[in-house]
Design a protein around this nucleic acid. Structure first.
Lengths: 225, 225
DNA sequence: ACCTGAACACCGTTCAAGT
DNA sequence: ACCTGAACACCGTTCAAGT
């Protein structure tokens, strides 16, 4: 795993490609050109090697993304955690969300049930904090996993919509037209009309998260599902 | 919009390509080969025309997907709605979820804030029902929009994870290994270990939705955000 | 071992040209 | 108008061959 190969013998010639170098170059591309531009071919060009050479260091594009994801999550700083278990869930989840919102491509690799099994310990502290807090609150381990999954669905969905909306804003589609709807068919929608845009601009992630967590904790302690 | 061009003059030769034919062919490909296989080139081949010809009937691949999405959502059947507003939200959302789970690619086009503005009236009844129910419950229009967005984040996230997990099950990654974690670093996760897989297999979408909706309604009626 | 170029089997999209 | 082939600028990945 962590075998360092910075030099091999007396030649002193540093290896042209190492996993660390690959990851650095990949992050360089993402930060500079956007994450859609991270391709095997571009990454190889960035390092200065042939595309095929990359396959000696990384099995797949998927493995590359997983490596990158673990590396990134391991560097996310740990926020101070409050004592109250409920608040601890909110804080840890918000940290998870902010990390994802800053690098939305992580959801691409992380939106598989069981992706936790692919992560390093250093990347799993957020999951651990949420599980521990839920159990502190009185949940069973199974309930804690259930709560984590629900929180992750909500968070992943919000990050994806957020990312797509941001790239749309740059882009193509017209401004917005919820005003010319047939009021007899969809009266409430027609009444809201174009003010939808204003309302939807507000960042309500944390509000919604609180509602979800409170609902989940109430559910878990009232009856066992 | 609905101008029919099934014949133009006396020639009697039906046009080789119409929007309806394109959509039918696209659904054929998705149902037969999976939605990843729906490409402009394959679609053209399916119809029996050149790829470039398609661009005379559809601006973009994105427009094609939007056309397909509207068409599909318009055909989703309306479930009987209960009187209780809270239950109405659950039923309408579940219908929306089931439609998405059956055709997960819809999230690709629908995970943009404001995607509602791109939909036809016939596809918007689920949104309308949710907004109406929230207002029936005592919410302001703005609160109703907020509730819809939260519900959509949770639902979209669940559908995406569900779809990715299903395609993974066919696939590549190892079985699961949450057992060899360092218990000193992540004790709760290590304790759960491989039983995560069993717990995560349960379909808890509706349970989580109920928790979310109850949390949101409690929040909306207690104070105005 | 480590790296290479050439090739395979694809993409979405544009554009000048045909009928 | 409607359709076309050729081309552009890409993808991820494989494979036989080089050092």
């Amino acid at each position: 795993m962590s075998r360092t190969r910075t030099s091999h013998g007396r030649t002193g010639r540093p290896p042209v490609t190492s996993r660390a170098q690959i990851l650095t170059a990949a992050r360089e591309i993402i930060d500079r050109d956007g994450w859609e531009k991270l391709t095997i071919r571009r990454l190889a060009a960035e390092i200065g090697i042939g595309p095929t050479t990359l396959y000696h260091h990384v099995r797949d594009k998927k493995e590359l993304l997983l490596l990158l994801l673990n590396d990134y999550l391991g560097q996310v700083e740990h926020p101070p955690l409050p004592d109250d278990p409920r608040d601890r869930i909110i804080v840890a989840t918000t940290a998870m969300h902010d990390a994802g919102a800053a690098w939305p491509w992580v959801v691409e690799t992380a939106t598989t049930d069981g992706f936790v099994a692919l992560l390093d310990e250093s990347a799993l502290w957020m999951v651990e904090v949420i599980l521990a807090a839920a159990e502190d609150y009185g949940c069973t381990p199974a309930q804690a996993v259930y709560i984590f999954r629900c929180i992750w669905y909500y968070t992943a969905g919000e990050i994806i919509v957020r990312a797509n909306t941001a790239s749309r804003r740059a882009g193509d589609l017209g401004p917005f037209s919820l005003s010319d709807l047939d009021a007899s068919q969809v009266p409430h929608l027609a009444a809201i009309g174009d003010s939808w845009g204003d309302v939807a601009q507000a960042d309500t992630y944390v509000d919604g998260l609180c509602a979800l967590v409170d609902g989940l904790l109430a559910q878990a302690t009232s009856a066992k599902p």
